[in-house]
């Protein structure tokens, strides 16, 4: 139950601020329980740094249940570490071996500037949602929930896409730093559901334009995003975005 204990070398990106130049620092960590989560291992590192009078490593985290999308980290070159369908906060140290060196980097993308150490600014995602990732319905304006039936399988498809946690792993893992998986998940959810249909044309065109403006790369269909996505969003959503985009650009009246 107490598990084995690991001795690790951590190679962590340290950067004092957005404008500062950063670099890697190596830290030795001893006696890491295999039952710890990856973030708890970083907590231990930070307590050790605190004891040594150094500044702890800054990293984003909040719910530690794999849902809020706050945590990030490129772990040995893989977004959220080696396990599929898992966020960093749900990754446990039993995935590592005694004596391992673990390289920890922040998400790297022009649209996600580093704020400090492993913390990046993902507000680009907010601006993409602002550009059209919603249904324009004011509070109080809604018809009865059952007024428009939604076939069960479509609802499931929409839910698959809606499960996106907005962590940015798709961008981080993509060799082009493309945000297509994120954008397509929201476009898909709202294109599938009848509630989102009235705005589908304008939505896809605006969200793609915003995505480009934020400086994300283009999609080369390598599917690395799907493999890295902790919510296991499928690239079939990207195909749906492309369809929506084609339709909108050929027919829309704007």
């Amino acid at each position: 139950m107490s598990g084995e204990l690991l001795n690790l070398t951590l190679r962590v990106w340290r950067q004092a601020g957005p404008a500062a130049s950063g670099g890697f620092r190596d830290y030795q960590l001893r006696g890491v329980s295999t039952h710890m989560s990856f973030l708890e291992m970083l907590d231990v590192l930070n307590e050790q740094l605190h004891q040594a009078g150094e500044e702890p490593v800054a990293f984003d985290h909040d719910c530690r249940e794999g849902l809020c999308g706050s945590c990030s980290l490129m772990i040995n070159g893989q977004a959220h570490g080696p396990e599929r369908g898992t966020t960093t906060c749900q990754l446990h140290m039993r995935r590592f071996r005694d004596g391992d060196t673990i390289v920890i980097e922040p998400w790297r993308a022009t649209a996600f500037p580093v704020l400090r150490d492993l913390v990046v600014d993902r507000s680009a995602f907010d601006r993409i949602i602002q550009s059209g990732g919603y249904v324009s319905v004011n509070t109080g304006n809604a018809p009865d929930g059952n007024a428009i039936p939604v076939p069960g399988h479509l609802q499931e498809l929409a839910m698959d896409a809606a499960a996106c946690i907005g962590c940015g792993a798709c961008v981080a893992a993509c060799k082009n730093a493309s945000a297509m998986l994120f954008v397509s998940a929201k476009v898909s959810q709202l294109a599938i559901l009848p509630q989102g249909r009235p705005e589908r044309n304008a939505r896809v065109v605006r969200m793609v334009a915003q995505m480009d403006q934020e400086g994300f790369g283009s999609c080369t269909n390598t599917s690395e995003c799907e493999a890295a996505c902790p919510a296991e969003i499928s690239v079939s959503n990207i195909a749906r975005l492309n369809r929506e985009y084609l339709r909108a650009s050929m027919t829309a009246e704007f």
Binding site: F24, G77, Q78, K175, A177, G217, S223, E224, A228
Partner: peptide
């Protein structure tokens, strides 16, 4: 566009898709 989207490269980058016939993530790379 894609080059501009990531100006600082990763120290390590590893695919999560498993084994490819070619390095760099298969033909797409």
């Amino acid at each position: 566009m894609s080059r501009a989207a990531r100006t600082q490269a990763y120290e390590v980058m590893e695919s999560k898709q498993g084994v490819f016939a070619l390095p760099q993530g298969g033909a797409s790379g």
